[in-house]
Nucleic acid binder design. Structure first.
Lengths: 220, 220
DNA sequence: GTCTATAGGTTGATAGAC
DNA sequence: GTCTATCAACCTATAGAC
């Protein structure tokens, strides 16, 4: 579960056209949103034409789906394994890191989730996560705290994400976009990935326990 | 600061055409996103034509701006008053409640923020909020915790928002949208506004203090 | 204050040559 | 696999009648 810096993905520059299309598309989708990104824009950036895109992907929607699928699939697998709260939180942080670009897309661009026909699945997933975090026999307030803990990680991660030591070479412009979106002091001032994960985990656990009399949190 | 249930806005049904346009536009913007909502759709829902809309608003963008302005203006005023962290958190929760529909729009629809030319201001605001929450002489980790606390409230609120005793009559369909977006047990199971505010405040404070040795939080 | 009609532009997608 | 050429659909916005 310490894969915070070990990409299991294929080689970064496996220059297949389909993969290059996915990379550029993801980049532009994050930058301008799915709806506002035209196929012409993607094609121009790749030095090909729109028609060529259609040779590889039957539609704009299918291209989007191919980009978002890995994140949602893995998220689903993770949640359905039904791990205890703390392990779930750890796995989630790790998941966010490995799929950070796609996460930035679906978290910020409502329309992309809808276009990928992922609204239902993601709603169901969030519901399951909140249920698991709320613990057994939860009171209403426990649901709220579970949602807040989930949000603390998601938002905290997104804002501090620039802390990474090196930008993924496959996603050059994303770092600039993240910088604009985050708007905080320079990257050098931030904790590295491992420390970031620990901070976010502690924060989320603090939220979960913020309703109990003893607010102490066992050191993770 | 306890105005969680006291709307200071004008009468809910001040049926001026401009206001009715704003209400319907907000509703549809939240539901389908800014870009995907056409002026024809708004006009049809109001029983008028697109051209009539242009009599009241010079452009689609200006209509959007008129809808988002109150939230961002008030947020800015609040942050620039430079209150201490706990008061800032309280004010923020209250702000979210009073402008919940607009918040749902700008928080979920990346393109609406951009179209309203609010990206820079909101980035600056988040930066200021995080700075204030991080406290004096902050370490890098304090920034992350500040961002996580901010996120805990925002996300926690959005998920649990359905707890309101009665839906704003001006926004009938929003509740259905929120229900779909939240995907949690029935509204009746949720704390009311006052308790929700307390839970979220406690959660955010717990995050802020999750890095200190003594993790106790003074009862709010 | 609202209407009809239309200008002017962009988009996603297809057909067929090479 | 990539190209040129083209289509229908949709959009924002404007002009001018009532």
């Amino acid at each position: 579960m310490q894969s915070l810096y070990t990409h299991t993905k294929a080689a970064p520059d496996a220059g297949g056209t389909k993969e290059r299309i996915q990379q550029v598309a993801l980049e532009l989708f994050v930058l301008h949103g799915y709806e506002k990104t035209s196929l012409r824009e993607i094609a121009d950036r790749l030095g090909i034409t729109k028609a060529a895109l259609y040779y590889h992907y039957a539609s704009k929607q299918e291209l989007l789906k191919s980009v978002t699928q890995p994140l949602i699939d893995e998220f689903e697998t993770m949640v359905h394994a039904d791990p205890p709260p703390e392990e779930l939180l750890r796995s989630y942080i790790d998941l966010l890191y490995r799929h950070r670009a796609v996460f930035q897309l679906v978290a910020n661009d409502h329309s992309s989730l809808a276009a990928a026909e992922l609204v239902e699945r993601s709603v169901q997933l969030r519901r399951d996560v909140v249920r698991q975090l709320a613990g057994p026999d939860p009171r209403p307030a426990d649901y709220v705290r579970a949602a807040a803990a989930f949000g603390a990680i998601s938002q905290g991660f997104m804002v501090a994400r620039r802390a990474e030591p090196a930008a993924d070479p496959a996603l050059p412009d994303l770092e600039a976009a993240a910088e604009a979106a985050a708007g905080l002091p320079g990257p050098a001032d931030y904790p590295d990935g491992a420390e970031l994960a620990r901070i976010l985990l502690d924060a989320a656990l603090a939220v979960l326990h913020s309703g109990t009399g003893s607010r102490g949190v066992p050191g993770a």
